[in-house]
Design a protein around this nucleic acid. Structure first.
Lengths: 156, 156
DNA sequence: GTTAATGCAAACGTTTTGCACAGGC
DNA sequence: GCCTGTGCAAAACGTTTGCATTAAC
């Protein structure tokens, strides 16, 4: 997965200006292995930038996605983003429905899939959803303490 | 895949009233094997019902989805619907990016996937996208005639 | 100094809601 | 006749756009 520095470097190489906000975004995604919605990002950024507007966040997320430093997937709840994985290393993800951390799966099923006669395969989606170890334990604890595990970071 | 009659029957069994619009919806999904967006459905229904409103279409799509007669998947362009497949017969789909027809894949990769230690798998998504035989040919023809293959029906 | 990024406001498309009326059961 | 489904209007929501100001290069 791209590091904070790699994200900044790529943006700079492409002629984008490295503003303070973009540094913070790069850091957020470089250090966070889960998926974040535009709203999550906005709320996080708000803590640091008081007069922040939605549109800047959206614009930056879009630019960063177009640039390829962020990848987005469509959940039922909407589109979410995380730092791109290394393209050379094709893989899929286990995604925790609670904390949204991702765990890589090396196995890619597309090669084992035989398409009917004339069908030309161009892309595929393989995602496995469930609950990671931590969140299962947290859920058990939660039942007693009603504390919530909302951190969205540090795996993959 | 559920037939028009099965859709109507299920809705009736669940205490829903079978209005003329709902009959038409059931027929639309019972006979159409591709994915349709709410807008597609609305536009189709408009031909038959002049004073039709968006909200009724949305309400019915939602009700039918909650009831389980429709399944929805999230494309980049938004949410789309089609009649539910038989639950007993778990399978995945090849989806044509042009005409959105679906072709079943018996192969399910989830059993071949080993999750890390404590991860509890609850659901998965495996979809293969590409272009079906017809649309590849149509594309070649299209280059000359610029005719478009917009029908969204009759396979799976 | 030039050009791109930002904040603001307003627009846009999609989906949801409340309510009165029409229609299935 | 009861209660659900419908149409209408308006609101909510997420996202995008145009423009003047600000800041990176």
């Amino acid at each position: 997965m791209l590091s904070t520095e790699q994200i900044i470097e790529t943006m700079s190489e492409q002629g984008l200006r490295i503003t303070d906000q973009r540094k913070t975004l790069a850091k957020l995604f470089g250090e966070n292995k889960g998926y974040l919605s535009a709203k999550d990002v906005y709320e996080f950024m708000c803590k640091k930038y008081s007069g922040l507007s939605f549109d800047t966040v959206y614009r930056n997320l879009r630019v960063m996605h177009e640039l390829g430093v962020l990848e987005q997937i469509v959940f039922e709840e909407g589109i979410k983003f995380k730092a791109s994985c290394n393209q050379d290393d094709h893989h899929h993800h286990l995604i925790c429905l609670q904390c949204q951390k991702t765990y890589p799966i090396r196995f890619c099923p597309v090669d084992l899939t035989d398409a009917p006669d004339g069908f030309k395969v161009v892309k595929h989606k393989f995602e496995v959803f469930g609950y990671c170890k931590d969140c299962q334990q947290a859920d058990t604890i939660e039942a007693k303490t009603s504390e919530r595990s909302d951190n969205k970071s540090e795996v993959s």
